[in-house]
């Protein structure tokens, strides 16, 4: 209880602030329209208008919620869940690229981490670059990857997945190397006294003790993958996907559409990270980790 009340208070405060900001930012348009029509608006009428405009500067929360429901739940009820106007359809396009990229990036990251831990030359040559590359705005090359892959004939899901993979790759490498190195000297010595081979040490000690680190980087990688997929949809003039919804929304001034796409992306990110967190808790519990 003593955690939920403060959180709800903060969320409530944000919503109240949002409604207030919507009044302030949309007032000008409402007053302009009224002035042109030669009508005098009372304060309550102005407020009502700012919360119900078609193309507000800042849409009110209930408008965004309505739009979200209209493009998801209501479409499902009408049996058109996968129509082109449905956010579920666009979300699925983005989600599939995210998941594919995440799988590729995580797999490659774990493999490279295993290589780095077992090969000193690889460790010394690759690791500094892996760390340095995290300070570089990798997202900037997203448009180039899309166009280049396009010109060699690869289209659709793969280019976006590539960007996702690239973004989730490095967090996994860095986290996994840390995790595989986390067993201390005493534990490694114990396995040596058991005459364990390298493979056995890896399977029975290094891999299990790397799990907490792996899950932390998986969460970061998942969030990064989603950002990658969304940004990957921007430069190609794509017409499908959450990023494309934002872009077309910003071209045509459909603010409510941008906000609903943004919230859809946020909900998607939160549930993906939440699912990983759930698996993490289950798995670490079964492995007997301290809670």
């Amino acid at each position: 209880m003593n955690r939920i009340v403060p959180i709800l208070t903060v969320v409530l405060a944000i919503v109240v602030l949002w409604y207030g900001a919507a009044i302030g930012m949309n007032k000008k348009w409402a007053l302009d329209q009224a002035g042109r029509a030669g009508v005098e608006l009372s304060t309550s009428e102005v407020i009502a208008d700012t919360w119900s405009q078609d193309r507000p500067v800042l849409p009110a929360p209930h408008q965004v919620a309505q739009e979200l429901w209209k493009t998801t739940g209501a479409m499902v009820l009408k049996g058109r869940a996968m129509s082109k106007r449905s956010l579920i359809f666009h979300g699925w396009i983005t989600l599939s690229a995210t998941l594919l990229g995440f799988a590729i990036g995580t797999g490659a990251g774990i493999l490279l981490a295993v290589g780095i831990v077992h090969n000193r030359a690889m460790d010394m040559s690759v690791m500094p670059w892996a760390i340095a590359s995290q300070t570089i705005p990798i997202l900037a090359i997203a448009p180039m990857i899309i166009v280049v892959l396009n010109s060699v004939g690869i289209q659709g899901l793969l280019p976006k997945a590539f960007i996702s993979a690239y973004l989730s790759f490095f967090p996994v490498v860095v986290g996994m190397v840390k995790g595989l190195r986390s067993p201390d000297a005493m534990q490694l010595d114990l396995l040596r006294t058991y005459n364990a081979s390298g493979g056995e040490t890896f399977r029975k000690l290094r891999l299990p003790s790397s799990m907490p680190y792996l899950f932390t980087s998986l969460k970061i990688g998942m969030a990064a993958s989603l950002v990658g997929a969304i940004v990957g949809e921007l430069p190609t003039g794509a017409i499908r996907g959450l990023g494309a919804r934002m872009l077309t929304g910003s071209y045509y001034g459909q603010t409510i559409q941008i906000w609903s796409a943004l919230f859809a992306a946020a909900i998607l990110a939160a549930s993906l990270v939440g699912i990983i967190g759930l698996i993490e808790r289950r798995m670490l519990k079964r492995m007997g980790a301290k809670q």
Binding site: L139, K219, A223, L226, V227, I230, V231, L242, G243, M246, L247, G249, S250, T255, I258, W259, A261, L262, A265, A266, A269, A270, V273
Partner: peptide, 12 residues
């Protein structure tokens, strides 16, 4: 943890 970069079109 959210894709905050999505606010870019709004802020622009």
């Amino acid at each position: 943890a959210l894709p905050i970069i999505g606010t870019a079109p709004i802020l622009v």
